[in-house]
Design a protein around this nucleic acid. Structure first.
Length: 221
DNA sequence: CTACGGATTTTCT
DNA sequence: GAAAATCCGTAGT
């Protein structure tokens, strides 16, 4: 009976990602995050929202003109990019939006993966309420597939903001990743394209660093 | 379905 | 002072 491997030691659904799971290069992590579950708990610990990650982008750090840490740029805003594997990097942009990244790589290496879209799984009613707040009326009905179909949309739906910048995803009670029902070897269903919204990055704007689950209806485009 | 312009304010030059 | 890892509403195909 001891010779039977326990599935829970591999990637059992629901098991939380640990520190070492994040310690890999951004391209590998961007692929491996697809199919995994992002879970957020409200500040008072009551409301829980979650979704399956269906779209990611890798940001390669010092060499990557599209990365906030390009050329070693280190400021108050992007300090979390140096926090090491498993740290959340949440930034504010365009005067009104938040985006959520998972820092990875080696300790002190400013590389990360932007989570761009989720398939909603838990707390869908709450997600819809949050997404409809602060919108001009009248508005058209908001289909479930659009609740988290974009990096700022998912932050709104899961109430991720700068208060979660710098938290440790392997230890936080507010934000973490759980192993999804599918193993990372779902490579056949992954499409790769250039990254969105980084036209300023010249030759790096075309790099194939965006990853999507082809069969998902919840991606950003 | 695609295309475009405005919103809105932090952040860094 | 300018840009920003975006989104939404409107207009058109």
């Amino acid at each position: 009976m001891t010779s039977t491997p326990s599935p829970s030691k591999l990637s059992a659904p629901g098991r939380r990602w640990t520190h070492s799971d994040f310690a890999t290069d951004p391209e590998s992590l961007a692929r491996r995050l697809l199919g995994q579950r992002l879970v957020a708990v409200s500040a008072r610990g009551v409301q829980r929202t979650a979704g399956i990650i269906v779209e990611t982008e890798a940001y390669l750090g010092i060499v990557d003109k599209a990365a906030h840490s390009y050329n070693g740029r280190r400021t108050l805003r992007n300090e979390s990019m140096w926090g090491g594997p498993g740290i959340a990097y949440v930034y504010f942009t365009y005067g009104m939006h938040h985006c959520f990244n998972v820092v990875c790589g080696n300790v002190g290496e400013p590389v990360a993966v932007l989570v761009r879209a989720l398939e909603p799984v838990e707390g869908i009613t709450l997600m819809r309420r949050r997404r409809l707040a602060n919108r001009s009326r009248p508005h058209r009905p908001l289909p479930e597939r659009e609740l988290c179909a974009g990096p700022a949309k998912l932050c709104q739906a899961l109430a991720i903001d700068r208060r979660l910048d710098g938290v440790d995803l392997s230890r936080s009670l507010r934000l973490w990743i759980e192993h999804g029902p599918n193993p990372p070897s779902n490579a056949g269903t992954i499409a790769v394209t250039s990254r969105i919204g980084v036209g300023y990055a010249q030759e790096w704007s075309e790099a194939p660093l965006r990853f999507l689950l082809v069969n998902s209806r919840c991606t950003s485009r």
